[in-house]
Amino acid sequence: MTTVLAVVVAGQVAGGPQGGGGKTQAQGGSEQGDDAASRGSHDDDGRGAARSANSPAPVTYDEKMAALYPLDAKLRGSGAFQTVRGHDKAPGRGQVMRYRVDVEKGLPLDGQLFAEAVHKTLNDDRSWGHGGVRTFERVSSGHADFVITLASPGTTAAWCAKSGLDTTEDNVSCDSASTERVMINAYRWAQGAKTFGDDKMHSYRQMLINHEVGHRLGHNHEICSKQGALAPVMMQQTKFLSTDGATCRPNAWPFPKG
């Protein structure tokens, strides 16, 4: 009798995006804020740990937004983008800003989740439409005021460089102001940063969106001015929470009180 022992190793690959494609938190290593030419950037702290294979798959929007996803910090994707299809009406009042959501082709992240997060975040009263100043409409064709783009670190760096911004040192995101694209680094979207920690991934992702779109709206970097205060959303929170001896608390919103 012959006994055969078969060992099967199964791997999981996350489903591809349904969508495709800046300033950055990239430039301005100084903790004193930056001028308009060096807006926006975030850091690489080696957070490559994937979620446990035994963890239940996230189901609800909040669960998905709270989860970490495996992604190589040095990934360079195809460089081609796919638009997330669909249309989300502007729910508020004031100036209507139209945006498109693109996701890099082949990126192993959920493009529909990213698009949903962008729309919900930007149209929250704590975001840039606060007080009825403006409202955001997602389009997948026709004119768009900007294109918020989820892309691999390598592709993010290439697009940010078009506007003279270097995202490679700290593996950050940017608003590539000389182009139509607000670039969100997929590594940061997937893995977050030490400043927020694993338990604040949802909030961290909201901060990424608000920070980089804030640059598109003309806002520059800010610093922590008071010990224990909420960090300004335009602070480079992926990199640090302390400036001039004061340490702030993580914050995702330009108007956190709503």
Rank of each mutant, 00 (worst) to 15 (best):
M1S: 12
T2L: 11
Q12R: 08
A14H: 05
G19P: 09
G21W: 10
D45Y: 00
G48V: 04
A49C: 01
R51L: 06
P56K: 15
D62R: 05
E63V: 05
K64P: 09
L68G: 03
A73W: 01
G79I: 00
V84M: 10
G92V: 04
Y99P: 13
D102W: 09
D102C: 09
V103Q: 13
K105S: 14
G106T: 10
P108E: 08
G111H: 14
L113R: 14
F114L: 13
F114A: 15
A115W: 12
A115I: 14
H119P: 11
K120I: 10
N123P: 11
S127K: 05
S127R: 06
H130M: 08
G131M: 12
G132E: 10
D145Q: 09
A151D: 03
T155Y: 02
A158F: 00
K162W: 02
S163M: 04
G164R: 07
L165G: 01
N171K: 00
S178P: 02
E180L: 05
G192T: 01
T195K: 05
D198I: 00
D199H: 11
S203C: 02
Y204Q: 01
H211A: 07
E212L: 02
E212V: 01
N220T: 12
C224V: 07
S225Q: 14
K226Q: 11
G228M: 04
L230N: 08
A231I: 02
M234W: 01
M234V: 03
M234C: 05
Q236K: 10
L241K: 08
S242N: 04
A246D: 12
R249D: 13
N251T: 09
P254H: 09
F255Q: 12
G258A: 13
G258I: 03
